[in-house]
Design a protein around this nucleic acid. Structure first.
Lengths: 153, 153
DNA sequence: TATTGTTATACTCTATAACTATA
DNA sequence: TATAGTTATAGAGTATAACAATA
């Protein structure tokens, strides 16, 4: 491959990624809106595994800690999460509720169905997944691990 | 491939796409900020080919036409674009200036260099590009055409 | 009467800074 | 003194509705 061709591909890829990113964001927003969920609440629900200090959650979501307060308030209002006291009495853990888990499952199902990736055949989806996972910040998120799909038994 | 495996891949792909989308967005914002450009202005500059009615530009950028007014104002203040009268005297075309073209080239260069795709080797970048272009809305954007890189010349 | 661009207004998301309770 | 969460405030981005000019 010539350097020139590589440059053309790189620039076109950068531009395409931005477009795809916007499309993905719009598609996700539309999906969760159909469930009556604002995007930040949906994102937080997806990020919520084990009960987690609000401060850690802010790091995990790459936002300011003060922002988590409002999100936690709204999740509690909806019964999707609750604050629980930590050992250190300054700390509050945010814990997903059963109702929250049910909503999270619905979000995943709807977002999956509405994703533009439904245009690809299964083989290409798997290929795309492996390429994208290599793009993610290493170690920044557990999803950055190499593809390793526990093949349907 | 079993249905179960396909489901796992689809859901993981949906989630990964959201994460990658966020990363791309952050990376792009960081790149254009280093050039002193707000994201909406940079996006508009990238979308600006031939002089285009502001109304069409709004469709192209998937935003409300009223929003273009402010963007056009700010691009004009910076000398990166100008409004020109259309045949239909209700219409104003937005036209990129030479200075705007120079800025657009810089944006593309910086965004390309800062893109997470630099982690992939050239062969994989090309593969990823072809997959992503198939994801874009058909006909919604000229980038949706099949890959066809005019190899070095 | 319909359409283009503008203005006025408001809403959502998010950050910064000051505050409190605890460590 | 430093840290976790909260509150108050501000700013960016974007949408809706009413408006003026033109078709």
């Amino acid at each position: 491959m010539t350097d020139e061709r590589a440059t053309v591909v790189s620039r076109r890829l950068a531009r395409t990624l931005i477009l795809v990113g916007e499309q993905i964001k719009a598609s996700f927003a539309e999906s969760v809106e159909s469930l009556g969920m604002p995007v930040p609440l949906a994102r937080t629900l997806l990020a919520l595994g084990a009960p987690e200090p609000m401060r850690d959650l802010a790091d995990h979501l790459s936002c300011d800690p003060s922002h988590i307060t409002g999100i936690a308030d709204r999740l509690e209002e909806r019964g999707l999460a609750r604050r629980v006291a930590g050992q250190d009495r300054r700390v509050k853990l945010l814990e997903i509720t059963d109702e929250g888990r049910a909503m999270r499952d619905r979000i995943i199902a709807v977002a999956t169905a509405g994703s533009p990736t439904t245009r690809l055949d299964p083989k290409d989806r798997e290929l795309l997944l492996s390429l994208l996972e290599r793009l993610l910040d290493d170690g920044a998120d557990e999803s950055a691990r190499p593809v390793e799909v526990s093949a349907g038994r």
